[in-house]
Each structure stands twice: as structure tokens, then as C-alpha cells.
Amino acid sequence: MAARKDAVIKSIRSEMALANAQELMNKTNEKCFAKCVTKPSTSLSGSEETCLARCLDRYMEAFNIVSRSYISRISKERLEH
């Protein structure tokens, strides 16, 4: 019974992590394609690839900045009310 419970918990956790990672993938794809591939040609150019790689890093960084400020705001509001 306990083992089956742990298996359920583990599988829900990994589903959640997967969904979160997929959402981040979709977003970076959408945002960075919009920013870096302004005129699609027959293949990605070197400068487009450089832009995409940097954009991916910056989007992750933005996600962390936003995450930090959102969580700190929520904990602040919770203390006040």
C-alpha cells in the first residue's frame, strides 16, 4: 500500500515537472522565434542561432526574476492580511 502511494505521488510530481518544462519550452520557442528569426530563409543563419541561444538564456533569467518578485510580493501580502 505504502509503495503504491509513493508511486502515485512520484508520478504526479513528474507529470507536474514535465508540464512546467513543456510550458517553458513552448514559450521560449515562441518568444525567441519572434525575436530572432525575423525573415525565415532556407536554413537558420549563424547569427540567428547565436540570437536564439542568448534569447533562451535571457528568457530563463527573466522567468527567474519574475518568479522571485512574484513570490516575494505574495509572501508580503500574506503577512499584511
Binding site: 514559450k27 518568444k31 525567441c32 525575436k35 540570437c51 538564456d57 527573466a62 512574484y70
Partner: peptide, 16 residues
Amino acid sequence: HMLTSMCWDKCVTGTP
């Protein structure tokens, strides 16, 4: 995710 997407569009205007 929603806030990151919105704030990215608003704040990151240049080439990354």
C-alpha cells in the same frame, strides 16, 4: 509563466 511572457514583451525590446 503568464507574467514572464507579458513582462518579456514589455521589457525586452532589443535583440537578446
